[in-house]
């Protein structure tokens, strides 16, 4: 640990460069490597940011068993992040590790969907966010198993086994809380309505998605919608919750345009590497 922490360094990229990382030329936008790097950071940033959000419950959940379950799910997600961002760094070829990508990028270089950076609010809201994501995550990973890049297929197969349990758990709790007491029902309906405008981004297609799908590397996000719709419609009906009708959705996260919430999250997540550059244990 350095004797004088450099807490005034404002820019994560400057820190990374000071540590000799990312010195090689950046990938050219639109190149196949840049597309793949972007696609992989989208996957890894989704799991990282959601994993961090879920980990914020550690020590605060309503009952001990749920506290432990949330921490374990966060662990799964962060483990998957290491695989996705590790591969992203390898593809990029600038010597950046998964840790470098997690801790030494600024908000505008994160590519997660806006849904996962939404604040936790109450336990029901956290579970609803998890369910809406898991219902997308599972078909996404299943499609990725057939990626033209075997390394992607291997990670997807591994992660998919874990995510099957995530989805079972979040769907089960959405049903129990939705079809629970008046209070829990009202909170779940409220959560659903608050989160609904962030759902559409998961299926929104941009030019990077088109090229990745064309190469057979990653699925067209829009193709995941029917599976998601089927799961969500079925579970919400059983949970006695009313599916909102609006089609409007916020977007931009996948391209690095985030809500104010991500900066606050990163401040908590990255402060150690910023205050003590290069700290290891």
């Amino acid at each position: 640990m350095p004797s004088l922490p450099d807490i005034m360094t404002p820019d994560a990229e400057t820190l990374a460069k000071a540590q000799g990382k990312g010195r090689a030329a950046p990938l050219e936008a639109g190149s196949p490597e840049h597309d793949l790097f972007t696609g992989l950071t989208r996957l890894g940033d989704n799991t990282l940011i959601l994993g961090h959000r879920v980990s914020e419950w550690c020590g605060h959940a309503p009952v001990l068993e749920e506290d432990i379950a949330l921490a374990n799910m966060a662990l799964d997600l962060i483990g998957q992040t290491q695989l996705w961002l590790g591969l992203a760094g390898e593809i990029e070829g600038r010597g950046r590790s998964a840790d470098d990508l997690a801790f030494l990028r600024d908000a505008w270089h994160f590519h997660n969907v806006l849904l996962v950076e939404r604040p936790n609010r109450d336990f029901g809201h956290t579970l609803m966010r998890q369910f809406l994501f898991d219902a997308w995550h599972q078909p996404m990973l299943r499609a990725l198993e057939d990626s033209a890049d075997d390394r992607i297929g291997e990670i997807a197969l591994k992660a998919g086994k874990e995510v099957a349990y995530h989805l079972e758990r979040s769907a089960d709790l959405v049903i129990r809380l939705g079809d629970g007491t008046d209070e829990s029902h009202a909170r779940m309906q409220d959560a659903l309505e608050r989160l609904w405008p962030y759902v559409g981004e998961m299926f929104h297609v941009d030019e990077v998605d088109v090229r990745l799908a064309h190469e057979g590397l990653m699925p067209d996000p829009a193709s995941l919608r029917p599976a998601w719709d089927a799961t969500v419609t079925e579970i919400l009906a059983e949970a006695t919750l009313i599916r909102p009708e609006g089609e409007f959705f916020h977007k931009g996260g996948k391209q690095g345009r985030h809500t104010e919430h991500l900066g606050h999250l990163l401040a908590a997540m990255q402060w150690l590497q910023r205050a003590y550059p290069g700290a290891k244990w």
Binding site: A164, E168, E234, I235
Partner: peptide, 13 residues
């Protein structure tokens, strides 16, 4: 008896 995703879970419930 592994998790097969939501469908199996729903059936069990």
């Amino acid at each position: 008896t592994g998790a097969a995703g939501v469908v199996a879970g729903r059936v069990r419930r």
